[in-house]
Design a protein around this nucleic acid. Structure first.
Length: 286
DNA sequence: CATTCCGCCTGTAAGC
DNA sequence: TGCTTACAGGCGGAAT
């Protein structure tokens, strides 16, 4: 489910409501992808800061309870939340009993943040600092964001140079998260359609002009998906419980056998690296 | 070194 | 109906 738009939607749906809350406790359910890495009792009493996003991770700073002032200098550590394939977060005061697929409950003075994740590919990990070895192992290798904190898009020349370094197909390079992060299986197909590039095209064969178009297509697709509240294929919900609406405007993803909205040709499905790719032969050039 | 494949889990839908 | 198989939004590590 969750690619950059869904993770960002999730963040926006609860970051303000949980900011400043006091941690009352953290309850973990069945094992997730990685262990929490701390005795949950250690977190009780800390204050929740402003939740940020890096790639598909949500970064939640927890501040020392005693500190009154500068939120920058009193960080006790961070909870890193990842939604994996099937995860979603709910936040509220009356969530009720945890169900069989609820595997983390962060109880706070302002409500409970709950990770619901049937497949348990998601994770909640505590790191004492973003520079710690564990944090670096999870975050250190990540490529650049599609746009920075000021909204400036990834430098097109840098993006082009990153693509030149790979011999594999552009679809797989996008998924690898080295040239750019946040693009998953849905939005890779969508962005390549918008850019007019076939998913099988070797990344290194993409010249500067097409790299620029692709950079712009990625930003456009992700931004529009955020505006639409993300995509809900099966069960994605933000922390308000709202479904996304982007799947209604998808060009090619999950549309194999149907007509291309632009040229009327038949959308094809192929498999690359055991993942489905969708494209239009007429609209996308090798 | 880069690339491909596998496995982690559970749920759902399609095929026989 | 029941059983088996394929596939699903991610990602790290082993194998090649």
């Amino acid at each position: 489910m969750p690619e950059l738009p869904e993770v960002e939607m999730t963040r926006r749906s609860f970051a303000q409501r949980i900011a400043g809350a006091r941690v009352h406790g953290l309850s973990m359910g069945k094992p997730l992808r990685w262990p929490l890495g701390v005795d949950p009792a250690q977190l009780t009493g800390l204050r929740v800061g402003l939740v940020q996003r890096r790639a598909k991770y949500l970064l939640m700073p927890l501040h020392e309870a005693s500190a009154q002032g500068d939120m920058q200098t009193d960080v006790a550590g961070w909870l890193l939340w990842h939604l994996g394939m099937s995860g979603s977060l709910g936040f509220g005061a009356g969530l009720g009993e945890a169900g069989v697929h609820d595997h983390a409950d962060l109880r706070t003075s302002q409500g409970v943040l709950r990770l619901h994740d049937p497949r348990r590919f998601g994770a909640v990990v505590w790191v004492s600092s973003l520079d710690s070895a564990l944090a670096q192992r999870l975050l250190g290798h990540l490529g650049p964001e599609p746009w920075d904190a000021q909204g400036q898009p990834l430098d097109a020349k840098r993006f082009h140079q990153a693509l030149q370094k790979h011999r594999s197909s552009i679809k797989q390079v996008l998924l690898a998260g080295e040239a750019v992060v946040g693009v998953g299986n849905i939005y890779a197909s969508e962005a390549l359609f918008l850019a007019g590039i076939r998913p099988t095209t070797p990344a290194a064969r993409i010249g500067p002009v097409r790299a620029l178009r692709l950079r712009d297509a990625i930003c456009e697709v992700l931004r529009k998906a955020i505006e639409a509240g993300g995509s809900t294929l099966r069960d994605f919900r933000d922390a308000h419980g709202n479904a996304g609406g982007y799947q209604q405007q998808m060009w090619v993803y999950d549309r194999d056998g149907q007509g291309c909205t632009r040229c009327g040709g038949v959308i094809q499905r192929i498999v690359q690296g055991q993942r489905s790719s969708y494209f239009c032969v007429g609209c996308q050039r090798p």
